[in-house]
Design a protein around this nucleic acid. Structure first.
Length: 242
DNA sequence: AAACAAACCTGTGCGC
DNA sequence: TGCGCACAGGTTTGTT
C-alpha cells in the first residue's frame, strides 16, 4: 500500500516531457513514467488484472457510479510510480527539475530552439532525444521530426542555417501536436494504450520509424535507411534528409 | 563536450 | 517444434 495515496483526491493530470504529474489534495503529487512498457489503465473494480500489475489504486465511486481501479502495469519494470511533495527543496525527483523545454507546454518557436542549439556541436538525433534539452521527444518522434524537417540525423546542430531551425521548430511542434491528437503511436505489440486500453493511430502516419527498407513516402525514389546511433535505431531517407 | 556501451528486465519474433 | 539470439516506445552511469 502506498500510504501517502490513501484517502486523497486527484486534482488533475499534468505532464512535463514524458513524466505525468497528478496533483493530490494532500499537497503531494503522483509522478508516473511509463518508460518502455508501462501502462496506466482504468478498470472495473475486481476485474482480472494482467500479469505485471504493480500498482492498484482503488477509486471511490462517484454518485451512481460503479467502483473503479487505476492500474499501473509494466512487464519490463522500467517505469515508475512515485508519490512526492512537489514543493520540497531540494526536489524529491531531481530528474523532473532537470527537464528541458517542453515544446507543447512551454513557449516554443524557432528563436527558442535556436537558443537551445547554440554552441552544441552534437548530432541532431542525439540532441533531440536529450530530455535535458527538449523534453518529450522519444525515438519515434525524433526520427519523424527530422524527416519532416528534411534534416539528416547525424547533421551537427551547429551547421544549421536559420531556415533549417525554422523548419525544425515547426516540425517538432506540428508532429507532436498531430501525434497527441491521434492518440500516439501504438505498434504491433499494442503496448502503448490510453486509460481505457485503446491504441492510437499515429503509427499510420509514420514516414520513417519502423519503415527501414521500404520506399520513402515523400520522395518515393529512395529507400528508408536504418542505422544504429548511440544504441538507438535511427530511420531516415538518404535522399530527402540533408 | 560528445559519443559509445552497458545496465536495468521481460516478451516477442526470427533464423536455424 | 524448440533453442538461442537480436531487438524493443527510456534513462542513467561510466568509459573513452
Amino acid at each position: 500500500m502506498i500510504n501517502r495515496l490513501t484517502g486523497t483526491t486527484f486534482l488533475g493530470a499534468d505532464r512535463r516531457g514524458k513524466y505525468l504529474v497528478l496533483p493530490l489534495d494532500s499537497g503531494d503529487a503522483v509522478m508516473v513514467h511509463l518508460r518502455m512498457s508501462g501502462q496506466l489503465l482504468l478498470a472495473a473494480a475486481g476485474a482480472t488484472r494482467p500479469n505485471h500489475t504493480h500498482v492498484v489504486a482503488h477509486l471511490a465511486p462517484g454518485e451512481g457510479q460503479s467502483d473503479e481501479e487505476l492500474w499501473f502495469v509494466d512487464p519490463r519494470t522500467f517505469g515508475e510510480v512515485v508519490v512526492f511533495d512537489p514543493d520540497r527543496d531540494p526536489p524529491e525527483i531531481p530528474e523532473l527539475a532537470r527537464l528541458g523545454v517542453d515544446p507543447l507546454g512551454d513557449p516554443f518557436d524557432a528563436a527558442v530552439l535556436a537558443g537551445l542549439l547554440r554552441g552544441r556541436g552534437r548530432q541532431l538525433k542525439a540532441l533531440l532525444l536529450d530530455q535535458h534539452v527538449i523534453a518529450g521527444l522519444g525515438n519515434i518522434y525524433t526520427d519523424e521530426v527530422l524527416h519532416s524537417a528534411k534534416l539528416h540525423p547525424m547533421r551537427l546542430a551547429t551547421t544549421l542555417k536559420q531556415a533549417d531551425v525554422v523548419r525544425l521548430a515547426d516540425s517538432i511542434s506540428s508532429i507532436l501536436r498531430d501525434a497527441v491528437r491521434s492518440g500516439g503511436s501504438t505498434l504491433s505489440d499494442a503496448q502503448y494504450v490510453d486509460l481505457m486500453g485503446s491504441g492510437g493511430s499515429y503509427q499510420d502516419n509514420h514516414c520513417v520509424y519502423g519503415r527501414g527498407g521500404e520506399s520513402c513516402r515523400t520522395c518515393s525514389r529512395s529507400v528508408i535507411a536504418r542505422v544504429m546511433q548511440g544504441g538507438r535505431s535511427t530511420h531516415f531517407c538518404p535522399r530527402c534528409q540533408k
